[in-house]
Design a binder for these strands. Structure first.
Lengths: 213, 213
DNA sequence: GTCTATACATGGATAGAC
DNA sequence: GTCTATCCATGTATAGAC
């Protein structure tokens, strides 16, 4: 069922064989890391010979790039949806954190590749990905700035706090295991509460409301 | 000066050549990852031939393990010192977070290897490292439990919150750059404040005090 | 303890048949 | 579009001289 979700994420743009290679690549890269993964392994998981990989992707690095780009676009979409949604900054921030943390938990396999294999990208591919990452940072910082302007949040260091919030969610991909005791939904809820307390103005209307559920 | 600190961390137990290989290994593994690093590269950075590495370490994996063990022992020492220090839970937690985040920033090169190359360890070496990591988790959770018992903290999910706090600090190693605008000290201060707000009881004596510096 | 030289395995990528 | 076979570079680790 994890497989189904991961597969669905690649859409219907590519031929089916390319999709199989993408999911195989995600699994292999997440398990062993990009450099330790062989093209033979990827092709094998997709039920193909090593040579078949090169019909659909120019190089092994190109396969990584496609995975990374789709993943980053998805991540940006999640934050953008929350940022552009209705409601006060506190509600929008909670939505963003809930969904972003949840995504990193539910798709920790993809997220691991997306977040930890950037260094393996070629120079041009890397630049394209960095642009997407800047978007994500800017969108989240915007929500926090809104909350500070409205007096809803009290945050001394907005860029630092935005960085910490993203960092907290991203690191979920490192440690989350489907076998663990927490579901992605529960984790999203926990994290939204923790972040809410991090930014809430002391006298605010619901300061501390999330502390004891 | 980063080099001096990294070197100093390896103590004076080993012959000097082994120390050079350890620092070279840290730098290389942090830059390119364990699997993408060649023994030629490590030996070259240490000013030696590839063969010299095998005089001091049984395999490349053994070199990684030594780095990982020293790093984890250092990390545990930092958390243990804070946990066993004097003062209320809030003070001890702030000390732990300040020092732990600061260490991951200042020694982000070492920390990157310590935190992100675990999967490259052999089975027995991995088990030894996992034991150290469990210690770290237990020590931090203990501080939070103390604060909850004393009514100083209000935390609904103690294990989840402890995990989030460690996760936040660990991820510093991923993004921190010495070229960035924040110093390790400033980062430790910021993070201690953020975590303080995450756990503080709403009516507590200094609830929100850290919000505006 | 360090070197040069090298054995031996593995892996990315391609050629050419089907 | 996929396969089998293979080229060629690279990488870990060792042998043996100094």
């Amino acid at each position: 069922m994890q497989d189904v979700q991961e597969t669905a994420a690649w859409g219907d743009v590519e031929p089916e064989a390319a999709q199989r290679l993408l999911t195989a690549g995600v699994e292999a890269f997440a398990e062993r890391g990009y450099h330790a993964t062989t093209t033979r392994d990827i092709a094998g998981r997709a039920g193909m010979s090593p040579a078949a990989l090169y019909i659909h992707f120019r190089t092994k690095e190109d396969l990584l790039f496609r995975i990374s780009r789709v993943g980053h676009e998805r991540a940006r979409g999640i934050i953008a949806a929350a940022a552009e949604s209705e409601g006060a900054a506190g509600e929008r921030l909670a939505r963003a954190v809930r969904a972003f943390a949840r995504w990193h938990a539910e798709h920790h396999t993809t997220a691991r590749v997306v977040q930890y294999e950037l260094a393996a990208l070629g120079e041009e591919h890397y630049a394209e990905i960095v642009a997407l990452r800047r978007d994500i940072d800017r969108l989240l910082r915007g929500i926090i700035e809104d909350g500070v302007r409205d007096g809803e949040f009290a945050v001394a260091d907005v860029p630092g706090t935005a960085l910490a919030v993203l960092s907290l969610c991203v690191d979920v991909a490192r440690w989350f295991s489907a076998a663990g005791s927490r579901s992605p939904d529960e984790l999203g809820e926990l994290y939204a509460g923790l972040v809410g307390r991090m930014v809430a103005a002391p006298g605010g209307r619901d300061a501390g409301s999330s502390s004891q559920k």
